[in-house]
Computed example of a mutant assay.
Amino acid sequence: MNPTPPPAPAGSAAGRPPHPDLTLASAPVPAPARAFLPAHVRATARFTPPAQVRVLGVLQVSTYRGPGRSFVRPADDAAEPHLTLGVHASGRATLVRGDGTAACRPDDIFVCDGAVPFLLHEPVDFELHLLRIPRAALTLTDRQVRALGARAPFADGSVAPLLGPLLRSFLDTLPAFPPATALRLATTVTGFVGSLAAEGAQDTPDVADSVNGARAGRGTDTAPASGMGQEQRELLRRVRAHVDARLWDRTLSPATIAAAQHISVRYLHKLFESQGSTIGRWVQHRRLEEARRELARPGARDVAVGAVARRWGFANATHFSRSFRAAYGVSPREWRERTRPPEDTAGGGG
Rank of each mutant, 00 (worst) to 15 (best):
L166H: 10
L59I: 13
P17T: 07
D142Y: 03
G100F: 04
R69K: 12
G306E: 02
R240G: 01
L83G: 13
P341I: 08
T63Q: 07
D113A: 11
T278F: 10
R218C: 03
P5S: 02
F170G: 07
T63H: 06
I257Y: 06
E80F: 14
A198P: 09
R340I: 05
G229K: 05
E334C: 09
D21E: 13
V189H: 07
D249C: 00
E294M: 13
P332K: 01
R266N: 11
P81Y: 08
V41K: 00
S62Q: 13
P20H: 03
T251Y: 05
S169V: 01
R65K: 08
V124C: 10
I279P: 02
P28F: 04
H262N: 12
G11D: 14
A255P: 08
Q275E: 13
F320A: 01
T94S: 11
P205Y: 02
H285V: 05
A103V: 09
H129Q: 03
H319N: 15
G191W: 03
R54C: 06
P17F: 11
Q230E: 15
P341E: 06
Q144R: 09
A25D: 15
A258M: 06
F272I: 01
D244S: 07
G276Y: 08
Q144N: 14
D125V: 11
T256R: 07
S277D: 08
E334I: 10
G191D: 01
A75Q: 09
F314G: 04
R69H: 11
Q144F: 03
E334V: 13
R325L: 07
E273G: 04
P74K: 06
G348E: 11
T190D: 01
G219N: 15
R286M: 07
A25T: 08
Q275D: 08
R240I: 09
Q232F: 14
Q275N: 08
S26G: 07
G350H: 09
E122H: 05
G149K: 05
A78N: 12
G276L: 00
P165R: 10
A27N: 02
E80Y: 01
F170M: 13
T256Q: 04
E273I: 04
A25I: 03
A43L: 07
D21N: 13
P20F: 03
I263Q: 04
P18H: 02
D21R: 12
G191Q: 00
